[in-house]
Amino acid sequence: MKFKTLLLSSMILASTSALAEPTHRLFATNEKDNTVSVIDSRTLEVETSINVGQRPRGIGLSPDQTMLYVAISDDDAIAVVDVKTLELVKTLDSGDDPETFGVNPVSGHIVISNEDDGEATFLDPKSGEKLAVVQVGIEPEGVAVSPTGKYALVTSESSNMVHIIETTDYTAVAHLVVGARPRGLAFNSDGSLAYATSEIGNEVAIIDMEALKVVKKASIDVENSKPMDIKVSPDDKMLYVTTGRGNSVAFLDAKTLELKGNVPVGKRVWGLDLSKDGSTIYTADGVDGTVSVVDTAKQERVKTIKVGAFPWGVALDD
């Protein structure tokens, strides 16, 4: 009985420490003016902007959502910012030219793509220790870590591949060929499937994570489409893909890859994030210097927020 109570209370403790009260802040990296815009996602007003280093690109949150991570490409670092106080807590050595990263939802480790070196760096943000450097193809870009934390996926843009790396021993277990210039990656909710976009191939590929094989590919029927970032709806039924110079978010059936909708947003749209309830998409519109807010049910843009120069990515603390 005593043990049970102890277990229960420690479980509660674990769950409360696991997820901090969300700030509902939306963060956007502005690549060309070296700032991160902070937006209140409830009012959709810009609250402030913070300066974290030169050429901020990739952006994401720690699993407990207390820390914001930003890849500072020209400083070869990951900036760690307190989500509540907005203070720069520390900067971590990321290896050369970090473009973007994924966060392991279980271990909290950061997996970074080092664009100029053709490497993926595994980093422990608590200690700042580099755990491993894994050779991948030319121009690594997108990174995603599976929901169970078992696999890290890295795309290499100029080698046309998705590299699958086991996070326990940092070995690459598969190199899957996808369409030309692969960019973004996303997992479905249980990690059984992954999705990869290809910018020049104008494709989305479905990867079976049991078989470690590409099981389906389809092109996106949107004018000037150059697929970039991708997210999966919480019910796993829909894919949301930013189309770059297609200036839109394409809605694709997650199973058939059929185009189910196409919502115009700002020019040269790159990164996107999705609210946990799946109701709202936020996009970084590079050339327009805006963040677009898209209602997924209505399939329309409901708000455009002016941010800094060339927003690259967005992350929501909800």
Partner: peptide, 10 residues
């Protein structure tokens, strides 16, 4: 060189 880097994975 790039062909071998890419092909090396396969």
């Amino acid at each position: 060189k790039e062909a071998n880097l890419q092909g090396g994975f396969l």
